[in-house]
Amino acid sequence: MSAKEKLLSVSNLNVAYGNINAVHGVSFDVAAGEIVALIGANGAGKSSILRSISGIIPYSGSISYKGKDLKQTAADFIVALGIAQVPEGRGIFGNLTVMENLKLATWHRQDKENIARDFDRVFTLFPRLAERKHQLGGMLSGGEQQMLAVGRALMSDADTLLLDEPSMGLSPVLVREIFRIIAEINKAGKTILLVEQNANMSLHIAQRGYVLETGRIVLSGTGQELMGNPRVKEAYLGG
């Protein structure tokens, strides 16, 4: 891959919480239009990497997006640059209605007509949300909240979505549904960095993947390669 194609590139990323080192010298990149999966067990440092990219925790090393250094960029401006995150645990504002949750994500946008178009798209993608427009976010079921979280990321009109365990806590049917939607969103042009413990599903839809163990990348390859790797099979695909 040529350097030009790299949309997001992370190099030598280190994250520490007090004296706990969560991420050690992680480097990887994501090209425009890709789905890249980041696989790892609990505490491997996946969320810390996404939080660094979004600029909500301090880190050392460098992260650049579209050639721009993100370290000096405020979190809200990173969203305006085109990176939206669906945080772990969904991060729905329970005291705001579904409509308000979606609207909040359009904070930096001026393009009224396109916003209206994106509302339509989100409600077409997730008809359940359309039915619940005026309900408080806190009243939604877990699956509905996950849909709302993804819908919200779409409303921010970002080119790149960072998804932190979108399948967490969902029933098997909903898990398949959410992965189908991720693939669909990707086909429609969004670049996706997908953090998952569900290695099977995510490596299926990802072009490439990285395996993270205790804060270090220990394996990388195409989705196919990783699924065939004995180490991945044993540790993440249940033998």
Binding site: S54, G55, I56, A74, A75, D76, V79, A80, A84, Q85, P87, G91, F93, G94, N95, L96, E100, K103, L104, A105, W107, H108, R152, S156
Partner: peptide
């Protein structure tokens, strides 16, 4: 208003609000 919405969102969970592009 949008600013009021952001205030209410911050009162719910301040850590998530920057991810919405809102300058906290």
């Amino acid at each position: 208003t949008k600013a009021g919405m952001a205030m209410r969102a911050i009162s719910w969970d301040k850590t998530i609000v920057p991810l919405m592009g809102v300058p906290v």
